[in-house]
Design a protein around this nucleic acid. Sequence first.
DNA 1: CCATAACATGTGTATATACACCTTTCTCGT
DNA 2: ACGAGAAAGGTGTATATACACATGTTATGG
Lengths: 163, 163
Amino acid sequence: METTCAQAAPNPDPAAVARLCVCFNLRKAVRAVTQFYDTMLEPTGLRTTQLTVLVALSLAQRIPLRRFAERLVMDRTTLTRNLRPLERRRLVRIERGPDRRQRFMSLTGAGRAAMERALPLWQAAQSRMVGRGGAERWGALGAGLDEIVTIAQQNLSAAKSAV
Amino acid sequence: METTCAQAAPNPDPAAVARLCVCFNLRKAVRAVTQFYDTMLEPTGLRTTQLTVLVALSLAQRIPLRRFAERLVMDRTTLTRNLRPLERRRLVRIERGPDRRQRFMSLTGAGRAAMERALPLWQAAQSRMVGRGGAERWGALGAGLDEIVTIAQQNLSAAKSAV
DNA sequence: CCATAACATGTGTATATACACCTTTCTCGT
DNA sequence: ACGAGAAAGGTGTATATACACATGTTATGG
């Protein structure tokens, strides 16, 4: 037998919200993990965010800012600001293309060298996170995260177009 | 047959780093998810981070700052700054206790009301993320995130004590 | 009782993140 | 060829995050 209709949905229980919220749990995890990776990378003077920019850039030489931001699932203007410290340290180079609106980014020699120096420390941090035999378990989690990115992006554009 | 020993470990392949890095994948996911939740919560004037602070505070009235920060896996000083906008809007109250070093935080009536107004919107966002029948799959992911927090914290203190 | 350590918190600074708005440059229809 | 709109990017502002350092407060050993 069903409840007799027309009850207003009650607000969710705050304890359940705290336990179940996808966003909260992800943010909590990212705080813990970023602190650890950043500590491990500290001798290189690079943060994890900066290393990932260098790594992604090493895979896509001379890419315009907008496409690079999309690839990183990062707001365009966030990428602009994140490049600032790397540019100051001459690890990345930004040049105009023939279409003078576009800016093309690429790694400098110093940038590639800094990345190479940092990779062993990244490997150490990564190994301690995934541990022995963690490959399968982390594989599932990584796939879940990829899926989450897709769903969140679909939901976001649905929410925006449903003005 | 094994390789003849004594090769220096080669640097990891940048493509593998980008694909496998726990920190990078988490941060990417958190960007996408936070954007979606924040968009859904936009009518309330609260961000997801702020809502989670209100929710957590509703579960722990009059808690000192340090303990609250630990519970959220958040740096103490980060919490101080995150409280600022909520305090300005009179959603949380901060008072000294008998031990005059401590600050006790608690929700105001307005804070509780703002939380109650935001919860339905949070529920809508959450439902769209976990989807139909997503409970089990998200359950596994949530457990994985909890585990990641534990491992990252253990690794962090190990790294810090191993000066 | 006082000096010192331990403790709780705030501040200065730097990066990470994204929205709203603006400027510059290109494209395309007429 | 020109003007409207699209496209690429930057800036102003606000929050989120955390480390190094500074301040005030309590506990504690002599």
